[in-house]
Amino acid sequence: MITAGIDIGSITAKAAILEDGRILGAKVLFTGYNSRLAGQAVLDDLIAEIGITRDRIEVIVATGYGRNSVDFADKAITEITCHAAGAHFIDPSVRFIIDIGGQDSKVIRIDENGRVVDFAMNDKCAAGTGRFLEVMARALEVDLDGFGDMSLKGETPAKISSICTVFAESEVISLISKGETRENIIAGIHESVASRVSALAKRVGVTEPVMMTGGVAKNIGALRALEIKLETVIRVSPHAQVNGALGAAVLAGGIALTKYS
């Protein structure tokens, strides 16, 4: 049985396709202006890559901020439930998920069945999210892919005190003019993200093992800063960025089963 999950985030659209508990493939595209078209495009691309026909997909579940705009999906499920299902699918021992995406960061505590026990999300503020890191990388003229590695070279992380993305950017600019090294500034940026997210995590109560998902999980600087703050080793799935889509495909499998039972 083949199922698909589509995760429309604020920056990227992700798709994942599963066949009987095996990942056939996953894909990431920029969301752009039209989230419905993005969902269609990312699924079409992935189908072409895998080399299956569309009619072989039994159930499609959409998630993410654009979940309700994917009108060809069989069901819309929030990214909270999908991330839980995705993390549980990759590593059933995981009990806590930190997901940092484009416009929000969330923490989810799950039980042994991959079900959500409690969750919290950042509120009305982009600080501590992927977008925050993008803005900072641009201000520092550093490629986002190199951002994490560079941060590990920072020996004394600069202090970024502001909790607002816009004000933090001006703080970074003033640090640059004071001659602070880029590495220290970047390390400081990651520390500031980590302290915001760890406060969110502690509010819900961290239970180990912890897994990080979402696009920012690819950033080693953010990951290390979070590990230090939370005093735990954080697992990262090779499918971190598509974890929401993967979870959606897993849940689509459950829907397909009830459909035929």
Binding site: Y65, I77, T78, E79, I80, T81, R115, V116, V117, D118, F119, M121
Partner: peptide, 10 residues
């Protein structure tokens, strides 16, 4: 909406 939907799913 996301928070309420997720809460209800829980």
């Amino acid at each position: 909406e996301t928070r309420i939907d997720a809460f209800m799913e829980t």
